[in-house]
Each structure stands twice: as C-alpha cells, then as structure tokens.
Design a protein around this nucleic acid. Structure first.
Lengths: 98, 98, 98, 98
DNA sequence: ATCGAACCCCCTTTTC
DNA sequence: GAAAAGGGGGTTCGAT
C-alpha cells in the first residue's frame, strides 16, 4: 500500500516532486527566522520593563504612555473630549464646574 | 472658565439636553446587563471544566474537541489533508506507510 | 465493532467502556450549550452597538465608557494622575497651567 | 498657579527633577525602538506569506505547519492520541480500524 | 508573591 | 460595506 501519492490535491503547484517541497521549505524557514528575531526583541522588551520596574516606574503606566505616544495629540484630544462628553451625559462626571 | 458647554461636538444627536443622556444610558445599561450574563455563563463553563478535570479528563483536550465539533467533518478533513500534504513535502512525515 | 479498545491510554478513567464516553459527552454538551448562549448574548450586544451607532453614538467611545464604568473612580483617578505625571516628566504635556 | 508640582506621587523615584524624566525617557525610547523593529519584521513576514500565496500555497495551512513545527513530535503525538481517544469515546470517529 | 502560561477580547486588515 | 482572519494586548489562573 503506497504512500503519499494518493493525497495529492488538485490545487498544489503542478511541479516536479521535490521542487515544491523545497520551495515551501524556503518560505517556512524564512518565516521561522523572522519569528525568532521577533521573539528575541520581545525578550529584550520584557527586560527593559523589568529594569524600569526596578527603578520604581510602573510598567502598566509605561504601557499607557507608549500607547498614547503612538497617537497624535489631536486623536487623543478628540477621544478624550468625546469620552468626557458621554460621561457627562450619563451623569458620571461632577459637571466640571459652575 | 465655563463647563462642558464648549465640548459639544457637532455629531452628537441634536436632541434636547437630557434626552441624549437617557438614550445613551439605555444602550449602556443593556450592554452591561448582557455582559453580566456572559460573565455568569463563563463561570459556569469554568466550573464544568473543573468538574471534568476532577473526573480525569484533560481540559486542554476537551477544548480541542469542542473546537473541532464546531467545524464540519469536510472542513476538518480538507484541512487535515492539506496539512499532511505540506508536512510530507517538507519531509516532516514518516512517509505515511511502509 | 472493536474500534477504540486499542488506543486506551493509562490515564483515562478506569470505568466500564461506554460510561466514560457518556460521561465526557455530558460535559461536552453542557459546555456547548453555554457557548451557544454566550454567542447569542454576543450577537445581542453587537445589535445594540449598531443601534447606538445609528443613533449617532460612537461605539468606540461607548466601549471606553463601559470599560471605565467597571472600575472605581479611585482607580481611574490614580491611574490618570500617574499617566499625567509620567507625561509631564517626559515633556509630553503643556505644563498643565498658565 | 504652578504646574505639575501638586501631582507628585510618593512612589516616584526620589531623584532630582529632570533626572527621572530622562531616566524614564531612556526606557520609553528603547522600547519604542524595539517595537519598530518588531513591526518591520512583521511586515517582512507578511510579504513572505503573500509570496507563498502567489506560489499557490495556502497561508492558513502554512500557519498550521509553523505552529506544529514549534512543538516536539512527542507532544504532537501525545495530544493527537488523546484527541482521537476522546473523539472515539464520543462516537465522533468512524471506529478507526477494520 | 512572583513568574509563566492559557484564554479571551478587541482591533486592524483583508477579502468577498 | 459586511464578514472573516490574523495579530496584539490584557487579564486571569495555575504553578513554583
């Protein structure tokens, strides 16, 4: 009883056996290489957060600041304004002033 | 320096003050109610997983089975076949038979 | 119909064949039932967001408000204060006053 | 009326003003740099997936293969065996043998 | 109490 | 523009 010949699907590249596998492997390995690098960067990030924490900074607050730095001041203002407006409409705010 | 009057945005509903707040509150509270129910269901789910675990079943495997049951056998077969094909092309498989 | 006897693993419940399957099925079906309900609630939620959007409210802002309503005012204040502090230390703020 | 002096929190580093800001900024910028690199890698990944897709490979299947390659064959086998066992107990399988 | 992993949710992007 | 898929972030749980 034969091997993998039966499972050939019609939408696989119609190339000579072996070529397709090598071709696919190229892609796979390139992606894996990139993922390794991403993982390494993630670890470095984590270390910096730990350093910062050791220095007395709150990682959670740092994350918020990082997030806000990615956005334009206009975006932030716009959103903040809208949130404030909604909260006031809901009576969640002390009315802001007289 | 006055209060929230300045922050009125043009795309807020042009309704009488108070109406909008009540309107918004309706939505908010309905959503919150649904979220509460969802949380309750999630807790029940968790309990069942714990029961199952106590009975000797592996929650991780159960999750996999649940996921597969959501898909049609055809989908599963199709995917499984393709994965097998790719793995064989990559030499990740023992060739499937003697 | 011999089937699954061969694949029996040592850490499966040592019960009479059939009992275990029925037992497992109980758990599976209870969980699936809960998941269905959760899905239904999720759909209702989505509908409400769409309604709100149709009424001129911004779903994104609503989500923020919902998130904040889950937290205590003290938490919110504390966090907001810290974020402000960090941003000032970073020179991201206009100095906060005249 | 002064600026940010009032919001000073007791758990901020008791260092000379300016030092803390510079210190924090160091962390922030290092993290941002890493995030940029991660983003770049992600873009390269995406390009490779597109290439692969253009060559007739299914990105979805590739992702599954990548995931499996991260795990040891033993892990995969163990899990696969257990899933099969559970499915058979549930009557989800065609009995698996002659 | 800290660390790590697993799960869930939101959001963005792409596809149809 | 509606639906789906992938990626990222946050949170919670278990483990040490």
């Amino acid at each position: 009883m034969p091997g993998y010949h039966q499972v050939t699907a019609s939408h696989m590249p119609a190339e000579v056996a072996g070529i397709t596998g090598a071709h696919l492997l190229q892609y796979i390995e390139r992606i894996e290489r990139l993922e390794e690098e991403k993982t390494a960067l993630g670890e470095q990030s984590k270390e910096i957060f730990q350093e910062a924490k050791s220095s007395g900074f709150d990682p959670k607050i740092i994350r918020i600041v990082l997030r806000e730095r990615k956005r334009t001041p206009e975006e932030l203002d716009e959103e903040e304004t809208m949130v404030l407006l909604y909260k006031q409409a809901l009576g969640m705010m002390p009315a802001a002033d007289s």
